[in-house]
Amino acid sequence: MSSAISDSFSIYGEQFTSRLLIGSALYPSPAIMADSIVASGAQVVTVSLRRQQSVAAGDDFWQLIKDTGLKILPNTAGCHSVKEAVTLAQMCREVFATDWIKLELIGDEYNLQPDPFALLEATKILLAEGFKVLPYCTDDLVLCQRLADAGCEVLMPWGAPIGTGKGLLNQYNLKTIRERLPNTTLIVDAGLGLPSHACQALELGYDAVLLNSAIAGAGCPVTMSHAFKAAVDAGRFAYRAKAMPEKDVAAPSTPTMGMPFWHQEFGIKNKN
């Protein structure tokens, strides 16, 4: 069996072996953030061009992120309109010197649900401008298809609303998207709380997960980061190993040598 190391996935043509993408917000301290990122084994870190933040030389927080040496995925967190998101994406391209953008366009302020209509519109504009768009979207099949049709090579449907830690609320939808878009890189973004949630996403055949609060908000972020790394590996191994089919009737896993067959049949007859 080949190791997880040789198993990679693609984000717009670039290959990655770590299937955990990690966020850079909400940690108890920058030092804990740096340690958590290292422990996660992530190769991609998301950053938001925050309010009032200068990314000029001398900004210590930004320097710390650059020091991780990871691929930077800027996001448009907090944008509510196409115009805002496009402008912020353009600023991010200048500031972070990357054409990658995690496109986040909020439609509902309270549960931070993506606005699917504005998202598709902004995606088309940014793709036309040469951006490599990673849209944060809901788990709606038609929306995902439209985004893929527009030219997105990566889609990031949610597991649950941002920061809720509820896990994969609609596995059926996520599974359908995976089956119907076999050639698109799919990353579950947002809503994960437990390593088992990340494991489930990978078991479903998702290429990776992106998370922040589940690690940053844990009692010990660095330890939780280790846990997620292990869970993502477990899920990926499980997907590649192909799970046994689920059955409704128990089948003994230990051979029942020496047990007379009539005994079981008798039992069944008696029941009837």
Binding site: P30, R50, R51, Q52, Q53, S54, G58, D59, D60, F61
Partner: peptide
């Protein structure tokens, strides 16, 4: 609480 060195006036959003 914002990770920034900017000491300029408060924003409307904040």
């Amino acid at each position: 609480e914002i990770e920034s060195q900017d000491n300029g006036p408060a924003t409307v959003r904040s």
